[in-house]
Design a protein around this nucleic acid. Structure first.
Lengths: 190, 190
DNA sequence: ATCATATCTTAACTTTAGTGAACGAATAGC
DNA sequence: GCTATTCGTTCACTAAAGTTAAGATATGAT
């Protein structure tokens, strides 16, 4: 499991055994049961998450309805906005499946990055890459119809359609569950 | 004009005169006329832009139609996705107004960050902050109707409604110019 | 295994967005 | 200043999404 993290890091920087041991001493790795809520609306945290195996999901509670905005699966990272702004969270984060992940907080990041400046470089590269990827996702969302967005998801993350309940996918696509159901039956007829 | 950049940087790190001089030696500052296209579809670049005064806009050309996805105004930065992936750009970037901006490339970033590691820290902080902001924008977009998105824009960036042509705002809101026009007259009647 | 709950689908109806076309108004180029 | 183009609005029509409700299926808890 730890090797998964090291493999990921090696895409950006190379680690000495010494550096690996510092990471291992931090007690980063956690196993979380399906349904566990990692972060609640109104709660403060400065945790960051990195999914090694499984899936976590962020959602807002609007008029009593869950509105799912993101899924994070294998080798994806999330830092809740509230962790940076130090304000109460606007949304929930929960585990969709039994999940293995790392949980780190800003103190740990400060400490490690202070000790090994190359971690700053990695974080910079990784953040910039995430920012660009998310920008493209946003652009595609804006320039597509719900149907195109569904077909796009089918292409890009077919696994999600298997592992995620329909109604969560719907709000992820920016539509109601009924519309998604209708849209799908429309596509089958074609 | 240079002071604007230093003021911005000072939100993250403090600069010595030496460091400031290195930045000034890089010939970062440019004045660009309205309508100038900074980046074309199909073109490669590794430039990054930081707007000091004015406004730049990114847009796709889909079926001969411009689809605007972002506006960058005072104290906002953009690095085109193609600059990181080193692939041809999928979109255009052009100046909506006469604009003062800094243009840097990845070589310059490497050089400066190599010399002064604290720039890595700044970039890391800034990227993480941008990522969180953009995530929130995306979430709001997903969980809102076109009408709510318009009202939200009115609240958050009222300046854009003054300085940007209606049809560009429309695609920024993910709708057609006709729909925006209709939506606005619907709101007036209320 | 049973019951309660959650999930997915379907349907009828309402509301809103997309489309194509037409029209003045504003803008830019000559 | 005049003309051509672009821009914003309106209209009629079509297509799709939201809403409310109902029924069927699947899931989870005891």
């Amino acid at each position: 499991m730890q090797q998964l993290l090291f493999d990921f890091i090696s895409k950006y920087i190379s680690l000495t055994d010494d550096e690996k041991n510092v990471l291992l001493s931090l007690n980063l790795f956690h196993s979380v049961k399906k349904g566990t809520i990692l972060l609640r609306e109104g709660q403060k945290t400065n945790n960051s998450y990195f999914v090694l195996k499984g899936c976590i999901r962020s959602y807002y509670l609007i008029d009593g309805e869950e509105r799912t905005t993101a899924f994070y699966t294998e080798m994806e990272a999330m830092t809740p906005a509230c962790a940076l702004s130090n304000t109460p969270s606007d949304y929930y984060v929960s585990c969709l499946e039994d999940t293995m992940l790392t949980i780190s907080n800003s103190d740990m990041t400060e400490e490690v990055n202070g000790k090994f400046p190359k971690f700053d470089i990695m974080c910079r590269m990784f953040s910039a890459e995430m920012l660009a990827k998310q920008r493209i996702d946003f652009d595609e969302f804006k320039t597509s119809s719900p149907e195109q967005r569904y077909l796009n998801l089918l292409q890009k993350r077919p696994d999600l359609l298997q592992r995620v309940p329909q109604h969560q996918l719907a709000s992820y696509l920016g539509i109601t569950p009924q519309s998604l159901s209708r849209l799908r039956s429309r596509l089958v007829k074609k």
